[in-house]
Design a protein around this nucleic acid. Structure first.
Lengths: 185, 185
DNA sequence: TGTACATCAGTGAACGCGCGTTCACTGATGTAC
DNA sequence: TGTACATCAGTGAACGCGCGTTCACTGATGTAC
């Protein structure tokens, strides 16, 4: 049964959005086209009217997720706010709506160039954003510091999620918050 | 055709070793039982004489990889050596023989408790190891610093591998080496 | 030490299932008059 | 503005392939005498 062009565009957006969440939550291989379409309240057959392949959707979903997460942090205006939010227990528990790199980091390295380029763009933007939140040092030192801070954030969240011991997970997040949350002079 | 008990044990070890490398290189879902057995120079049918399931091998392969990487770093005796080696271009390019957490971090979070517990043990050991390399500060401060340093190492390697731009990858590794390689007072 | 038989590590065909993808079909939408 | 037809978004069955797992079989190893 045909659907209005506007509704079709909305459906497409819903598929990308569902994919962006499900991929982060379960990994690229952990989610099938069928599950994504079901999440978007459609049937799997219609998928290929919107996308050339699952790979194509993966790339588009990553672009969507990167866009969203960048938009989200525009509102933050201090390093400690950014770090505290990123290294929160809430973010640790909610892979599906969180940072793409922490949710899919190792998987991204094995994906097609187009997808990796998209993620690289997101990383660059995140680093630039942190640079603007740093107040001390030369531009080069601030950039270096921003990269190390972002690396620390991603690594701490990855470690906290990998570990099965809640106490250790909390300790990791707390240690990283204290280390990366304030700008050491 | 039957094989001596000693040879059978050696075969089992070869399967675990091949699995540890292949899983890190291609991800848990990226490698099949067939590929692992072929890498170990056996046929896939014999697999279930050694292991109850692919999941069981995954857990054992992680234990093996954690053991090996811990043994490897025993030889290092300074923080800068450890950090420089970890954040080298060689390690970035060689996922299959490198750090388990950087190679499979996000995937580990989705695995069975037994596997996550094994990885947690490896993480604890790595943190303890870094603590012994730190010279300044109270025990609590050193532990905090060790966790943050390990997080920075894992995150930087993850970012460098995710990115498709070699120049950016090198910049990330260099920034992290400078930041985490020397013990800030 | 040698022989006869039981054991069992490894082989390769086969099974069942899930997943990515295709396709004939449906019926509401969009358009031409 | 209303009617007739073409278009095409979405449906659901089906296909083919790969993967985890099973199983009957093989033949060298291990053991009992």
């Amino acid at each position: 049964m045909r659907v209005s062009r506007q509704k079709a565009m909305e459906n497409r957006r819903r598929i990308v959005d569902a994919a962006a969440r499900l991929f982060r939550g379960e990994g690229f291989d952990g989610v099938g086209v069928d599950a994504i379409m079901k999440e978007a309240e459609l049937t799997h057959g219609g998928f290929y009217g919107h996308f050339a392949s699952k790979d194509a959707l993966m790339a588009e979903a990553m672009a969507h997720a990167v866009e969203r997460s960048t938009a989200w942090q525009e509102r933050l205006d201090s390093l400690s706010e950014l770090v505290t939010g990123y290294l929160s227990d809430r973010h640790r528990a909610d892979r599906a709506n969180g940072c793409v790199v922490a949710a899919l980091g190792a998987d991204v390295a094995r994906q097609a160039p187009a997808l990796r380029r998209t993620v690289a763009t997101g990383i660059r933007r995140q680093v630039d954003r942190i640079v603007t939140l740093l107040k001390h040092g030369t531009p080069a030192a601030r950039r270096r510091r921003a990269i190390a801070t972002y690396a620390g954030m991603v690594g701490a969240l990855t470690l906290a999620r990998a570990v099965d011991d809640p106490a250790l997970a909390r300790e990791i997040l707390a240690a990283a918050r204290e280390t990366f949350g304030k700008e050491a002079s």
